[in-house]
């Protein structure tokens, strides 16, 4: 048999993976290697696969993903810092038939927006919260976050996070899993293909749960911030696996 040429493989009928059409044409503004891009894609793939783009309202936070609405071709609003769960509540309560999700980073969700996060979870708002934990404030230039690990350096903990004076990293996902209003709480990661697939399943569940009026679904994604961590993307993923994951253990914390 004649040798198969690449051109024989690269044909439209042979496509097994392509970019979801729910991305806009704008290139992502994230740094090379940033996990945000993967999670954006997973959210959009889930929306596309469920066929709910006309029924979905997204809420962008303040932080690196403040511009998520530039890349996601769905109706979106940009929330004040930390208030995304309040906006989501305000929307979902009068649009019970819609799919509403927030997309928030660790500073937004676990520091300035702690009250909004906890109370939306406690009320059991029928929404999905997608939470990106990269242990640092990326957008403002690598300052300490509520999730920064003990000893971890940042621009506001240049000698490492001293838990005696700077407090401990907050496991807000464990915290909200204890609230009766949350129905599905999980922590995943996106630095390997297998973990990306698991994360997508969790995000899918978070959206499916809304259809069943189950209550609040909360999916944390432990991600990298190679710029803030001052590493190459590949090194940052290795560092994540070796340092973040022992503290932020992956898995489903709650599924009711």
């Amino acid at each position: 048999m004649a040798e198969l040429r690449i051109e024989d493989i690269i044909k439209p009928e042979n496509i097994v993976f392509k970019k979801t059409k729910l991305f806009t044409d704008k290139p992502l503004s994230y740094c090379p290697g940033c996990g945000h891009g993967v999670v954006h894609r997973l959210v959009l793939e889930v929306i596309e696969e469920m066929g709910i783009e006309a029924e979905t309202i997204g809420i962008a936070p303040v932080g690196c993903s403040v511009l998520a609405y530039e890349f996601m071709n769905i109706d979106m609003v940009q929330a004040p810092h930390g208030r995304a769960p309040a906006l989501a509540t305000g929307i979902k309560r009068i649009h019970t038939e819609k799919f509403v999700f927030t997309y928030q980073g660790d500073g937004d969700l676990a520091a300035i927006g702690t009250a909004e996060t906890i109370h939306a979870c406690n009320r059991g708002e029928n929404i999905a919260i997608i939470f990106i934990n990269n242990g640092i404030y990326g957008m403002t230039g690598g300052q300490m976050a509520p999730t920064t690990l003990p000893g971890m350096q940042s621009s506001t903990s240049p000698y490492g996070r001293d838990v005696e004076t700077m407090g401990h990293p907050m496991k807000i996902t464990e915290l909200v899993s204890n609230l009766p209003g949350t129905r599905f709480v999980a922590r995943h990661a996106v630095h390997t293909p297998a973990l990306v697939r698991k994360t997508k399943k969790a995000i899918r569940k978070a959206f499916e749960n809304q259809k069943e009026n189950k209550g609040l679904s909360f999916v944390e994604v432990v991600s990298n911030c190679n710029s803030g961590w001052k590493m190459s993307p590949v090194e940052s993923n290795k560092w994540l696996a070796e340092n973040m994951l022992p503290f932020y253990e992956l898995g489903t914390l709650k599924d009711e």
Partner: peptide, 12 residues
């Protein structure tokens, strides 16, 4: 703070 942001969301 939450109340006005709920209003903001609904108004959007």
């Amino acid at each position: 703070l939450a109340a006005i942001n709920m209003v903001y969301g609904a108004a959007c």
